[in-house]
């Protein structure tokens, strides 16, 4: 499955720019994997002329090969207090599964990076699995990741064409972040997994309840009746739809992070089962 995920990234709409690392794409370019023979045209690299084929055909023949690239897999995983909640387990558990699956796609000369609250984690000199392991184990303690700051770091530090995974509930995504999202969508192959509200199908609350904001610690009392529960379900669905449209319009691939299976959630975002 991770191979399919990697292939999906290689054939994605944003071409990775780390050439010559043993992962052929669909595009013609510099690489090792033979694609076809065609008649020489002016400007072709003379080193690509197939002399045996030229002898057989009587005219100059050029070997066309597939572009050979390596992926840069980057991830932003929201570990804020709001992601520590969940119905059966914290949303961060599913987010970690999604991240692990994401880094498992790293092979050969692929490079991995992770943006945490403390900054960019990009293991120097490491490639493939080792690089993925280092990123997956990266921890930021005591500081909460802010999405806008993480996006700034990504824009400044990641190479063009990198595959960027963002797993978050997107509650701290500013209303005026569309331009930033658009820029990231152009620069990178962006995938957003937004954490589905644990109670998306109905609040298990009734009457007066005292609730605490996981992020700010503020407490408030609410009266939740049947009408409010129905309204809540509708609002959650609307938010998912709006967020999906907003990210989709910015050129992002989107999917829902289900609390029970983060790996499957990521694969579903790529249309893989």
């Amino acid at each position: 499955m991770t191979t399919q995920l990697r292939n999906a990234l290689l054939r994605g709409k944003r071409r990775p720019r780390n050439f010559g690392a043993g992962s052929p794409t669909n595009f013609r370019g510099d690489g090792y994997e033979f694609a076809e023979l065609r008649q020489y045209v002016a400007g072709d690299d003379t080193r690509r002329i197939d002399w045996a084929a030229t002898a057989r055909a009587g005219t100059l023949q050029t070997r066309v090969v597939l572009e050979d690239v390596a992926l840069t897999l980057a991830a932003i995983i929201d570990d804020s207090p709001s992601m520590q909640l969940g119905r059966a387990r914290p949303l961060t558990a599913a987010a970690t599964e999604a991240m692990t699956t994401w880094y498992e796609a790293a092979l050969a000369d692929d490079r991995c990076a992770r943006i945490t609250a403390t900054g960019l984690v990009a293991p120097l000199g490491m490639r493939g699995f080792r690089s993925a392991l280092a990123c997956a184990n990266a921890r930021s303690t005591g500081v909460t990741l802010a999405l806008p700051r993480a996006f700034d770091i990504a824009r400044a530090a990641l190479p063009r064409g990198a595959a960027l995974l963002v797993v978050s509930d997107f509650f701290d995504l500013p209303d005026d972040a569309d331009r930033m999202l658009g820029e990231l969508g152009v620069l990178f192959d962006c995938t957003a997994l937004f954490a589905r509200d644990p109670w998306y199908d109905g609040l298990p609350l009734g009457g007066f309840v005292r609730l605490q904001d996981a992020e700010t610690g503020a407490q408030r009392q609410f009266f939740i009746g049947r009408k409010q529960r129905a309204h809540y379900v509708k609002s959650v669905a609307q938010r998912e739809e709006l967020l999906s449209k907003r990210l989709g319009d910015s050129g992002w691939r989107t999917g829902l992070l289900h609390e029970d299976d983060g790996r499957q959630s990521l694969l579903q975002a790529f249309g893989l089962r």
């Binding site: 709001s82 509650f171 509200d197 605490q212 904001d213 996981a214 309204h231 809540y232 609002s235 938010r239």
Partner: peptide
């Protein structure tokens, strides 16, 4: 004795709780 919720501002708008 409170329940934690991800984002009270969203909940407030989502449930439109009467006062």
């Amino acid at each position: 004795q409170t329940l934690a919720y991800t984002n009270l501002a969203f909940l407030d708008a989502a449930v439109a709780a009467p006062v």
